[in-house]
Simulated assay, not measured.
Amino acid sequence: MTKCIIVDDERPARDLIRLHLSGLQDFELLETFDNALDAFNFLQRSTVDLIFLDIQMPQVSGLELIKSLKICPKIILTTAFREHAAEAFDLDVLDYLIKPVIRERFMKAISKFTYYNNTIPEQTRIPSSFDNAYIFLKTGKEQTRVFLKDILYIEGYKDYIKVHTPNRVFVAFERLSYMEEKLPENKFARIHKSYIVSLDGITQYNAGEIKIAETSLAIGRIFKNNFLKKIQGYKRG
């Protein structure tokens, strides 16, 4: 069962999303909120899979709510304004719906959620032994198995990634944030909004960049402290 909440300061907008949800199987509406602060407090104590979230609200905006969450559920934004789309997708939102949300567009967003939430995790297999661990990536029309030990680094480009291995670069329809969740954190590190690297593959590093497979990659400012702590305490093997 997919657990949902609605966060919108306009009651008609909340009621419309509630109506659209009412016809779906396997979706449970836990709560509705007219402000982001109450939603934030609820999320601190409850597990939620999907949030329907307005952007412009008093005190705390929808985008500010997303930025405040360490672990963020999937987000479908509902808004009357188109100009926030670029910033929203930089925050890895699942979809961006313009009010009033028509049923056809709503169903398309739900289909996208179902694809990400159900299909891709079922294709992922990470056994306990790292030497044998692998992940399936959607490369074109096929699913390709990539062993985690072969991954040197991953580049993110919004809706797709490039996975660099010693012998090949895989282009896959996936988001970097998803890979960050699925890869073992004791073996990989996010060093930039666009890069995840294998700790085993790093040959040199300083406070500003790392070197891996003869390639230099910048370390982003907001990732620097966590990366340096991780690499300084890292033991290979």
Rank of each mutant, 00 (worst) to 15 (best):
S61Q: 04
S61R: 01
G62E: 04
G62P: 01
L63V: 05
L63E: 09
E64Y: 10
E64S: 14
L65V: 05
I66Q: 06
K67L: 03
K67Q: 13
K70E: 15
K70A: 15
K70M: 12
I71P: 11
I71N: 14
C72A: 11
P73V: 03
K74Y: 14
I75V: 13
T78E: 12
T78W: 09
T79E: 13
T79L: 10
A80P: 13
F81A: 04
F81T: 03
E83C: 02
E83S: 10
E83N: 15
H84S: 00
H84I: 00
A85K: 07
A86T: 14
A86V: 15
E87D: 15
A88D: 05
F89C: 00
F89G: 02
F89S: 00
D90P: 00
D90Y: 05
D90I: 00
L91W: 13
D92H: 02
D92S: 12
D92N: 13
D92A: 11
V93D: 05
L94C: 00
L94H: 06
D95I: 10
Y96H: 11
Y96D: 07
L97Q: 03
I98C: 10
I98N: 03
I98K: 05
K99Y: 10
K99W: 02
P100R: 11
V101Q: 04
I102M: 14
I102R: 14
I102T: 13
I102L: 14
R103W: 08
R105N: 09
R105V: 01
M107I: 11
M107S: 07
M107P: 05
M107Y: 09
A109Y: 04
I110P: 03
I110L: 09
I110F: 04
S111D: 11
S111H: 05
K112T: 12
K112I: 06
F113K: 02
T114F: 06
Y115R: 05
Y115M: 10
Y115I: 02
Y115S: 08
Y115T: 07
Y115F: 14
Y116R: 05
Y116G: 01
N118E: 11
T119E: 14
I120S: 03
P121E: 07
E122R: 11
Q123I: 02
Q123T: 08
T124K: 07
T124H: 09
R125I: 09
R125A: 04
R125P: 08
I126Y: 03
P127N: 09
P127C: 07
S128C: 00
F130Q: 02
F130M: 13
F130D: 06
